[in-house]
């Protein structure tokens, strides 16, 4: 099936700026869904608030566009009440890790079979270019006219430390990798995190003189390397891509099924 079979055409044109990386992520996310052959009726997309979160309206799945930072909490209710559904949760960096940071670490710990996709452009785009917890130091933003002094999270380290059983990272330049990693993440039984570095030429790039979208994509190409590569040893500044963890441990809903069985056995005896 072609990608356009998975979108709601009446919702287009989308609201993303020219050069934004989010459209590339949407495209390759849909390719992953297509590859896996999942029925649209079995897919739920839950998102929060922000540029990235508008993605849920564009896909022809069951779509839940919620409130800022809480997408994972809504998704937890959807999945727990109907475990057969595949639940995808695209989030921005601010949505997932600032206002939604607490839900993120707890979702990692709980290991419910959800697929979190963090579209990290290191900026609040929709509100006009304020710094996020992923911006890092020395960045020019509307709320840091003298450059940021806030240190950033590393999404992958945070996910690993919080107990996520699948953790991966790629960029909007590495389009086939997006498809591959999202497909693996959806197939993974347990909580999966896929961080995708995305470019915001309008706010992040323009203010920080990083050039246009193609320059920013080139940055992703030149400054990233596959996880565990020799290049990383030679240049520790490189950002690693790939799968950092893929653990086969029981997911929350499977464990809860056992809780139900235990409770029902106890009742009959």
């Amino acid at each position: 099936m072609a990608v356009h079979n998975y979108i709601r055409q009446r919702f287009f044109p989308h609201l993303w700026c020219p050069g934004c990386g989010h459209g590339t992520i949407l495209n390759n996310m849909l390719r992953a869904v297509d590859e896996l052959g999942i029925s649209k009726n079995d897919l739920v997309m839950v998102s929060g608030i922000g540029c990235s979160s508008r993605i849920s309206g564009y896909v022809d799945f069951h779509s839940l566009h919620t409130i800022h930072g809480r997408a994972l909490a809504y998704a937890t209710g959807v999945k727990m009440s109907q475990p057969r559904l595949n639940v995808l949760i695209p989030m921005g960096d601010g949505d997932a890790l600032a206002i939604g940071g607490n839900h993120f670490i707890h979702a990692c710990r709980r290991n419910m079979d959800l697929t979190a996709i963090i579209m990290n452009n290191r900026i609040y785009g929709m509100t006009g270019g304020q710094f996020s917890p992923l911006s890092g130091e020395g960045i020019l933003c509307t709320t840091a006219p003298q450059l940021t002094i806030d240190r950033s999270f590393d999404t992958v380290e945070l996910a690993l430390a919080s107990g996520a059983s699948f953790v991966a990272r790629t960029t909007s330049f590495h389009v086939r990798e997006i498809t591959k990693l999202i497909a693996r993440a959806i197939q993974h039984k347990g909580f999966s995190v896929v961080e995708i570095l995305s470019q915001c030429p309008t706010h992040f790039g323009r203010k920080n003189k990083l050039g246009d979208a193609s320059n920013m994509l080139e940055f992703f190409k030149k400054n990233t390397t596959p996880f565990g590569s020799k290049a990383k040893q030679d240049n520790p500044e490189l950002i690693e891509r790939g799968i950092f963890r893929e653990l086969d441990i029981p997911d929350y809903c499977a464990d809860y099924e056992r809780t139900i069985q235990k409770a029902q056995k106890g009742k009959s005896s």
Binding site: V46, L64, Y74, A75, T76, G77, V78, K79, S81, Q82
Partner: peptide, 10 residues
């Protein structure tokens, strides 16, 4: 949020 999500699945 969780109960709202659960209600949507019926």
């Amino acid at each position: 949020c969780a109960i709202t999500g659960a209600s949507l699945t019926g």
